[in-house]
């Protein structure tokens, strides 16, 4: 081979670039977020309220658009009631509707509350890594929700 040294070195770089994922993930366990649909927080709710606003399949695909629609309804149109596909009524409110199941789990847990390491943003779904919160799935797939550029938990509320 002519100029063999340079060509082989380049090919090694090529192969290394394309096999980055194999080396990067070597020895790691493939553990995605495991979102449970019957946490204690959900079980405490009356049976009629244990269902999410829409079906899990719908929420998986369209929660971002639903939240967008809610924001528009509440902030711009003054509508505060959402009627879902089954005709059931829900309050259009992140705090009072979504977070009833999706954020109360750790926030209401005294062990977590009293842990000084968690003193900021315990019930902030953007920061909390528990599977019922946004962050677990969103960090896993590197999708940055824009909710928390405006919405955030004031420090005083946590104390």
């Amino acid at each position: 081979m002519y100029k063999g040294g340079k060509i082989i070195a380049s090919l090694i770089i090529f192969a290394a670039l394309f096999t980055i994922p194999f080396f990067y993930n070597m020895g790691k366990v493939n553990a995605g977020p495991d979102v449970a649909l019957d946490t204690p927080a959900i079980q405490r709710l009356p049976a009629s309220e244990q269902q999410c606003v829409e079906s899990p399949e719908f929420m998986k695909e369209n929660h971002m658009q639903l939240l967008n629609q809610w924001r528009e309804e509440a902030v711009r149109n003054g509508q505060t009631v959402y009627i879902n596909s089954q005709g059931k009524k829900f309050d259009i409110s992140l705090q009072d509707t979504c977070l009833k199941c999706h954020a109360t789990e750790s926030a209401s847990n005294p062990v977590v509350l009293n842990n000084p390491a968690n003193s900021t943003g315990v019930s902030n779904p953007a920061l909390n890594a528990s599977p019922e919160f946004c962050a677990s799935c969103h960090d896993y797939s590197a999708v940055k929700p824009l909710c928390w550029t405006c919405h955030f938990e004031p420090k005083e509320a946590v104390k």
């Binding site: 980055i20 994922p21 993930n25 790691k28 960090d139 896993y140 590197a142």
Partner: peptide, 9 residues
């Protein structure tokens, strides 16, 4: 697309 092949990203 590497976000699907690397963990953590």
């Amino acid at each position: 697309h590497l976000r699907f092949f690397l963990e953590p990203i």
